[in-house]
Structures are given as C-alpha cells and as structure tokens.
C-alpha cells in the first residue's frame, strides 16, 4: 500500500486508502467494470469481508486482483504470524458455485512475476484472481535478480468494438468486454442473468452461465511449473512461501540418496494441466504446508492425486532440517526405503 501510494502516480492512476474492506472490493469492482486494471490487498478477516464482492466479480465477469497476505486465523487469530491456511477460502471465498483462480508465489522474486500474472489472468479470463501471499513472505527481504521487464509480457482484456445490441454473455467462452459509455451497453448483474445481463431465473440460463463461467478457467491451465527427478514414484510438492525450506530439505534428502521427485508451481488453482497429469501418476505426493488440515493435499486428493500433507501450525515457517526428518519419517511409515535406510 505504501509503495503504491508513492509510485502509482500519473494521469488516470490512483491509490486510495478505503475505510473498509467492503468499500475496497466494491470500489475495484467499479473500476474493473469501467475498464481499469485494478487491485486491492488485505489479510485475514478482511479477506472474508470481501467474499461477497468477489462473488459478484465472478458472476458479472469483472477482471480484478485481490491480494490476501495470509496470517494465522481464524478471526483475529495470529495477526502477525505466518500461516498457509487460506487456500480453501481463496479458491472458494464466495457462496454458491464458483472457483477462483489462485496464484501463490513462493519467493520474493516470484512475488513480482505472480503479481504480473495475476493481472494477466484477470484480463484473460475476465474475472477475479486471488494473489495468495503470506506474512513471512510479505516481510521477507531478499536480494533478487532485477526482473527483465522486456521478458514479462502484459496481457490486456479483449475489448468490444462493435455496435449497440451486443449480447455480452451469449458466447460459451470468453467474449469481448464493452467499456461503459461506448457501444455495447450491458447489465453487469449479481443475479443470474440472460445473454444481455438482465435478471432471469430460467434454468437454461443458469446452466449456460454456470458452464460459461467455469469453462473460462481452462484458459488458465497453461502455467509454468518446476519438475525434477520426474521418474521417482514419490514426489514432494510445496506451495507458497514454504518453497524455500522444502527445497533445502529436498536437496538434503537428494544428497542422502533418497529417490524423491520435485514439483512446484505458483499457479495453484487451476494447476497446470500437464503437471496435474504427472502428479496423478505418482504413488505419493508429499505436501509440506503451514496449516492443520493439509489444505493443498485435500485439493490434490479431490483432483485424483494420492497426496499427503506434512503440516505445521506454530505461526512460524518450516525449518529445513526438521522437515527433511519428517519427510523421511513419512516415507518410512509408507514402507519406502530411503537412501539413509539403505546405508
């Protein structure tokens, strides 16, 4: 916020400190509808307060980015401690049938690229995108290579340029988005609507619009991912800010001769389609994560991956050495012989 207040300057640009999260989300809904690239940021209960507005963004198909810096919860919880416990909420913050795209960077460097990609995704599929950071990553200071901006493409929404009488929601998939005040006026409606945007409860429209909204997510399944030692039957797959600790644990286990694969992506929902297919072929995918329930492992299991979590919920990040020990212990419980056991 402070950075944007100082640097988001110039004609047509504005950074505003709103008085509430509801004001923030509805403000950026209006800006997104008006054709602007827009973002808000919050944490904990603030994210919950934005849930209804995010649902409206999904329903009316308005591009916007919501940053959720995760901390310990629920309620006021541990407001200054780190946790990765908003994944399920980020995927499904609103009531009703919806599934938000979620990008969760794992390093300070990835925070830059994740932010650009969150806007690109929002513009590409015309809807809300959740950028899921966490306290330890938000406060982490690190040296990173200066990003080469020429290699980071920026996407813009498909803008409608035709005449009036446009049926904004007629297509099965993505359709150009009109700019208010220009031809192509439509109703951006929170209620279920017909192809023009007018309210309707007719079953055929709810079916059409629901399938249209979910179908657009296929446009986001081409995210990059990391994969190493892909032939191993068991893989480790961190997400978000735990990436660094898990990577060091993975490297230590690799040095011991443990046959373990590595998978990682910041595009956590939807996952890159090719990566998901590879994960489905594994006997076990170990997911270290900072929450009680093992939320990413739950998501993976729902997608057909044999996943099991290693959890920590102290408000602190994983220590690499301790984590390496816990991964070995899990493999031993699963009857897997590790390099250390062979020795």
């Amino acid at each position: 916020m402070v950075y944007l207040e100082r640097n988001l300057v110039g004609e047509g640009k504005v950074a505003i400190q709103a008085s509430s999260e509801i004001e923030s989300i509805t403000g950026i809904l209006g800006a997104g509808f008006a054709g602007k690239k827009t973002m808000t940021a919050t944490s904990g209960p603030g994210f919950t307060l934005m849930a209804e507005g995010i649902g409206l963004g999904w329903m009316a198909e308005i591009p916007l980015v919501v940053v959720d810096v995760q901390r310990g919860g629920p309620a006021t919880g541990l407001p200054t401690k780190t946790e990765q416990s908003d994944l399920l909420t980020a995927i499904s913050p609103a009531h009703g049938d919806s599934r938000m795209p979620v990008i969760a960077p794992g390093t300070v460097e990835e925070c830059f690229y994740a932010s650009v990609m969150a806007f690109n995704w929002a513009e590409r599929y015309q809807g809300p995108v959740m950028l899921l950071s966490e306290h330890s990553l938000a406060e982490r200071a690190q040296n990173i290579p200066r990003p080469d901006l020429s290699k980071v493409p920026v996407e813009n929404r498909d803008v409608y340029t035709g005449n009036n009488g446009y049926l904004r929601y007629e297509a099965k998939g993505i359709s150009p988005m009109p700019v208010p005040g220009k031809p192509g006026a439509y109703v951006a409606n929170g209620s279920e609507h017909d192809v023009f945007g007018d309210t309707t409860h007719l079953p055929k429209y709810h079916v059409h619009m629901t399938e249209r909204r979910f179908g657009k997510l296929e446009l986001l399944e081409d995210g990059d991912y990391e994969a190493e030692n892909t032939k191993a039957k068991i893989a480790v797959m961190p997400w978000g800010g735990s990436k660094g600790s898990v990577f060091e644990a993975y490297e230590a286990l690799k040095a011991e001769g443990v046959d373990l694969g590595w998978y990682y992506t910041m595009f956590v929902s939807p996952l890159p389609a090719k990566m998901l297919e590879e994960l489905k072929c594994k006997d076990l995918v170990v997911v270290p994560e900072l929450n009680y329930q093992g939320q990413m492992a739950m998501v993976l299991r729902s997608l057909g991956v044999k996943a099991e979590a290693i959890t920590l919920y102290t408000g602190l990040p994983f220590g690499a050495k301790e984590l390496a020990g816990r991964i070995k212990q899990l493999l031993a419980e699963k009857g897997e012989r590790t390099g250390a056991a062979k020795a």
Binding site: I16, I28, A31, A41, V108, E109, C111, A118, G241
Partner: peptide, 21 residues
C-alpha cells in the same frame, strides 16, 4: 534488495495497474 510486498507492488505497476483501493 526488496520485500515480498514491494515485489508484488512493482509487478502490479508493470502489469499496468490503474486503480488500487
């Protein structure tokens, strides 16, 4: 040498953010 939050802000500016609320 930056923090994660600042990196997100820099990315947003590169992406062309116009409105932050």
């Amino acid at each position: 040498f930056i923090k994660g939050n600042d990196a997100i802000s820099i990315g947003a500016i590169h992406a062309g953010i116009e409105t932050y609320i």
